[in-house]
């Protein structure tokens, strides 16, 4: 299992467009990919889950990837988060 903590830096938070990008990035992988924040858990392959977290600028979350292809999945998702300027 791989985990990393992030803080949202995008002033608009994780709104619809980045949420869609995250789901699209996570979906091809077999691993379980989750975001944990303030006692809530979202399946990163579920747009409804991710948007329901309503992550705002400044809120922190933990990315947790677990499964056979966790290394690749972790890399793909963290790369997107950082490159799109969503969180750091």
């Amino acid at each position: 299992m791989k985990t990393q903590q992030f803080t949202v830096v995008d002033p608009q938070g994780i709104h619809a467009r980045p949420a869609s990008q995250l789901v699209a990035a996570a979906t091809p992988f077999a691993s379980t990919i989750e975001l944990h924040t303030a006692g809530k858990v979202a399946n990163l392959k579920s747009i409804l889950n991710v948007m329901a977290l309503a992550l705002k600028q400044g809120s922190s979350f933990t990315l947790q990837v677990d499964g056979a292809d966790e290394a690749q999945a972790f890399e793909a998702v963290t790369k997107l988060i950082v490159e799109a300027g969503l969180a750091k």
Binding site: A24, T27, K45, S46, I47, L48, N49
Partner: peptide, 13 residues
């Protein structure tokens, strides 16, 4: 419609 597709494909739904 891309957004609608994401919802229709949502594994949690």
């Amino acid at each position: 419609f891309g957004a609608h597709l994401l919802v229709a494909n949502d594994p949690e739904l």
